[in-house]
Design a protein around this nucleic acid. Structure first.
Lengths: 245, 245
DNA sequence: GGGGAGAGATGCCGC
DNA sequence: GCGGCATTTCTCCCC
C-alpha cells in the first residue's frame, strides 16, 4: 500500500476516533517506565476508541509494546516514512513506530455497551465458603467475608465455636509460597489486633505446591482442597466426555 | 458483509494459518478456568499464527476474552449464523463466538523474527546494585545475584564485612506489604539454612508504601531508595522539559 | 511440566 | 490519588 495514502487514512480515522488496525512492517521504540527497542518486522498496530495503542507480533497473547488508554496519538509523514507517535504524562512515557511498509489498513466505529459477566473468581469462592462453611470444617462459623481491615483483606473470617478464630485465605489456582506468606501476615495481624494467640490459618485452594504445603504445616496452618465454583474441573470434563458418547 | 462469504474466507485463512482480524457484532461464551458470558456488541476478533485468539472490545488495553496459544480453532456456518469455536486441553477450556454481523475481514501472513530488547527491569536493577554496592551501603559486599536456591530467589546476596549477611530485595516499582513478606521469607530461610541469626534484610525500591515501611522497620529491616536504571524518572523528565526551551 | 517470581504488568475496589 | 490484591493473569527461567 502507498504509505502516503495510509497516512491520510490514519489521520482521518484518528480524527474521527475510529478503531484502527494496521498491518505493517515497522520498528518500535519505547521510553518511560522502562526503555525498549524492537527491530524491523511485520506487526499489527491497533488504536482503540480510548486511545489505547497496541503493537502485536504475529504470535503470542500479549502485545509486545503498548500505550495505555488516554494516550496522545499522532501520525506524521516525514521523508517518505510514516511515523506513529504516542505519549503520556503521569508517568511520562513515549512511543515511536517507524512504519516502513503497510500491508492493510482497516478502521471502523464500533459500539459495545455490554459488560463481561464472569463467574468462578476468588470472590465467588469466598462467597461459596461463607455460605457453605462445612467446606472448611464441620465447626467453622463464618463472621465476615471480604473484610477490609487496616492491616489487610481477609477473604473469610470466623471462629470454630471452641474459642479459636479462623482466617481463611482463598486461591482459585494452585497456592504457592506467596499465598502462604500472605495468610501468615493476616493471622499475625489478627492475633496482634485482638491480643489473642488462638488464631488458625486455613488455605483453601484447588491445589497447593509442595513447598507451600511444607511451609504451611511448619507454621501450623492447614490446607483444605476447595475448587472455585462453576468452573469445569477435571472430573466434570471427564464426566462430560463420557456422556457425549 | 455477507456472513457466508466471511465464513469461506475465515476457513481459508485458518487453513493457511494467516493472521486474521474480524470486525463484527457478536456474543461470546467462555468456560474453562472460569466461566463468562459477553452479550451482543461490536468487537474485534484476532487469530494469530500460533492460534492465540483475542476478542477485544472497542476500549481497553486487555482483551475481554481470549484463548491461549495452541488452541484448536474452527469456524462453522450453521442456520445462517457464523460461529467461531476454540478449545484447549490442560486445562480444558472452550470458547464460542456467535457472529451476527461482519463489518470487515482482514488476513495476512506476517513475518517477524525480531525480539524485544528491554532495559530497566528488576534484573537490570539487581545487576546495577551488584556492580555498585555503595548504592546499598558503604560496607556492602555482594557475593551473588539472582541466586536460585531451594527456598527462593535472592536478588542480591552478600555481607557487610562485619559478620552479618545481607539479603537485598529489589522492586522496580513501589514496594508494598507483599514485597516485605517476600523479603522476610528470604531472610528467615537464609538464617535457617546457614544456622545463623545475623542476617539483614534490605528493600531496594524507588518508593515504599507507608504500611510496608512500618512492617519493614518492625521486622528490623531497612529501606534504601534506589531507582531502576535507564528509565525516565521524574527529575529526568523535568530536566528534559527545561532543556527543550 | 511444576514451581517461583517479575511485569513498562492491568484492572478493580476501597479509603 | 494511593494502596492492597486478584487475574481465565501472562511470561520467563530454573529445576
Amino acid at each position: 500500500m502507498d504509505l502516503k495514502k495510509v497516512f491520510n487514512e490514519l489521520v482521518s480515522s484518528i480524527n474521527k476516533n475510529y478503531i484502527i488496525v494496521l498491518f505493517c512492517n515497522c520498528e518500535v521504540e519505547y521510553e518511560g517506565r522502562a526503555k525498549s527497542v524492537l527491530g524491523q518486522g511485520d506487526r499489527m498496530v491497533i488504536i482503540k476508541h480510548d486511545n489505547t495503542l497496541l503493537v502485536h507480533k504475529p504470535d503470542g497473547r500479549s502485545p509486545v509494546n503498548w500505550m495505555p488508554q488516554g494516550s496522545t496519538i499522532t501520525a506524521v509523514f516525514e521523508e517518505g516514512m510514516l511515523v506513529i507517535k504516542a505519549s503520556n504524562l503521569k508517568p511520562y512515557e513515549e512511543m515511536r513506530i517507524n512504519v516502513f511498509e503497510a500491508y492493510s489498513f482497516t478502521s471502523a466505529p464500533l459500539v459495545d455497551t455490554e459488560q463481561l459477566k464472569l463467574v468462578g473468581t476468588e470472590k465467588d469462592m469466598s462467597d461459596m465458603i461463607y455460605d457453605n462453611p462445612k467446606l472448611i470444617s464441620e465447626k467453622f462459623i463464618p463472621l465476615s467475608r471480604e473484610e477490609q481491615t487496616e492491616y489487610g483483606f481477609l477473604d473469610v473470617f470466623g471462629h470454630d465455636g471452641e474459642g479459636s478464630f479462623i482466617v481463611v485465605e482463598c486461591k482459585r489456582y494452585t497456592a504457592g509460597l506467596d499465598s502462604v506468606t500472605q495468610l501468615r501476615r493476616y493471622v499475625e495481624k489478627v492475633k496482634q489486633s485482638k491480643g489473642v494467640d488462638n488464631v488458625k490459618g486455613i488455605m483453601a485452594a484447588p491445589n497447593i505446591s509442595s513447598n507451600a504445603l511444607k511451609m504451611l504445616t511448619d507454621l501450623g496452618f492447614e490446607y483444605k482442597p476447595v475448587k472455585p465454583p462453576n468452573s469445569l474441573n477435571h472430573s466434570n470434563v471427564k464426566q462430560r466426555q463420557i456422556n457425549e458418547f
